[in-house]
Design a protein around this nucleic acid. Sequence first.
DNA 1: GTCAAAACTTTACGCGCGTAAATTTTATAA
DNA 2: TTATAAAATTTACGCGCGTAAAGTTTTGAC
Lengths: 343, 343
Amino acid sequence: MGGKKIRNMEEFASVSGISRPTLSKYFNDPTSVRASTRKRIEDAVERFDYRPNLYAMNQNRKLTRNIGIVVPYLADPFFAEIARTVEEHVLETGYRPVLLGSHGSPELEIENLENLRLIKPAGVLLAPSGRTSDRDAIAAFCDEVPTVLFDANIENVGEAFVGSNNDQSIGLIVEYLCRTGEPPVFFEMENPTNPNAHKRRNAYIAAMERLDHKPHLIQAPGEGWEFEEIGFREGARVVRDRTLPTNTILCSNDRLAIGFLSAAYEAGLRVGIGQGCAMRVAGHDDHPFSRYSCPTLTTVSQDYKAIAKKSAEILMQRIDTGIPADSRTETVFDGRLIMRGSA
Amino acid sequence: MGGKKIRNMEEFASVSGISRPTLSKYFNDPTSVRASTRKRIEDAVERFDYRPNLYAMNQNRKLTRNIGIVVPYLADPFFAEIARTVEEHVLETGYRPVLLGSHGSPELEIENLENLRLIKPAGVLLAPSGRTSDRDAIAAFCDEVPTVLFDANIENVGEAFVGSNNDQSIGLIVEYLCRTGEPPVFFEMENPTNPNAHKRRNAYIAAMERLDHKPHLIQAPGEGWEFEEIGFREGARVVRDRTLPTNTILCSNDRLAIGFLSAAYEAGLRVGIGQGCAMRVAGHDDHPFSRYSCPTLTTVSQDYKAIAKKSAEILMQRIDTGIPADSRTETVFDGRLIMRGSA
DNA sequence: GTCAAAACTTTACGCGCGTAAATTTTATAA
DNA sequence: TTATAAAATTTACGCGCGTAAAGTTTTGAC
């Protein structure tokens, strides 16, 4: 509003009547100046619409207030949601989140990390692509930048890992399914992109054996992130062939389940728990859309809010203390059974 | 690989045997140096793992090679997809895309633009939040940074607008629905967040009148971006009350339709075109999940690839020429009818 | 009112790079 | 081979800010 454009902090110092070093202190931490000074600066900022040059601020800094957030696939609503939540936590602590999606490509994942290095982030929250991730490249990155992994673990890489307790959550839903009907077969991808998939498969097998049932796996061919399509294709095959030893299917994740439900519907097969239902289908993740599938999808929720919060907290603590944790921690949160119509 | 860490371009110049100004030229445009020199530099970059300091590079520049991409809601798969596509086009031109989602909040939208100003982007691709957007703030931003609007238009703001031809696409599906059964009612939100919603409503009314049918609107209460929930709630009400003048419903967008389908399913109402079907439901957008709804959703696709490409092209042209277009252009792409099971 | 601590000002230098101007080297063609 | 344009080098300065050191003012407890 005031008048002419302020070009730099020097000019802003003269028009605002505050010395440049004090302004510099303020812009790097507003609470580091006296309240009365802060008010004068803030009024002047408002009046002259001055913002310090971000690039000049950061050029001499070892690291910035940027926090990188990297997820494998932003178009997957699950990752979009968890990224959003992580973003909010980062913002709350006064850091600047920088969101990057890898479009399911491990090359882009590495490139994203490369680009992050250029902006000298104070830390990074990384959900690795999984199986296809370049372990060595990621490990090298983590040596330079404090990094917390979430969702998918890579053994001994990064400061910490925060994710879901797949043993517990899969155990939970296997037990529920067995208690309320026939024991489930496990439906997954032949070559899952996600390392959680392997944990879930093992958890399923363990849970079935614990309950004295014989595990049975259906492994759908297919690559990439088109999970619904894979679930649909294999679902169509399964209901056509009718070779299942049971009427109950536990899918490795909700997106597969949604595709499966679609195939069952197309085949005229009624899915659910009521009378007249030919089969039961359950998922895992409590995907945002699973409450609107037909029937609504019984699943296990991942506590993604807790995961987001915890991973942000660990990273912030690591940044604030400046010292690497003496030991790498792994935190997993329990899932909750979400009983809906499909099983 | 080589040896010690290179700290700056000066050091890199001495170890690589290339003068610093030439290196500077190279890093700002690799093609601006002779091929033989380029090769020598690239070998040295490889050997010494040197990257110029991004912040020092940009501090004296009027603008950078950053391109901002702002969408209202990244957790909406439609925006996630279109953002992804835009991102790819930007990357191809050698610019650095910076993706920002506004989480449906107009305040965050303005904040995102503020933050973008700090990084001095060469241009911005903005999908406004719609009705709730702060027009003046966005217009002010567009005066400073070359900005192309996409998806949602704001009259006379930005260099150009690229979007969908709602008149054509709604006309298309209304005509299809009328031709194959009862004329549709139009189902939308009472206070739609999206300006396209108004265009679609008007297009529906116009199309119905053109075909000598009486338009009929159902306007669901509800705020925010939980479209499926709103579609579900109002859908449940509609099928319970059975006060419709027709058996055919055209939803303002696919996410409302998916919610509606879920409600119909829960009520035991069969949706589709076969015999024994109580009603038909159609959507708009060809949302990524609409091919897996039950039944699969008949809809109109938005040509989001064309939208993404065109808006990126216009922006790049604006940036390359450096001159603002003599007149603001508005480009709209036709939709395609996607015939599936629901109508 | 006194006084020490805290906060601020003044002065001054450095960071890593962009970039202009003058000069020298290299490539290309006559 | 020589002329000439193109490219690279040398030299030098500036950008906007961080930050250290020394001096001055303000604050708040007594």
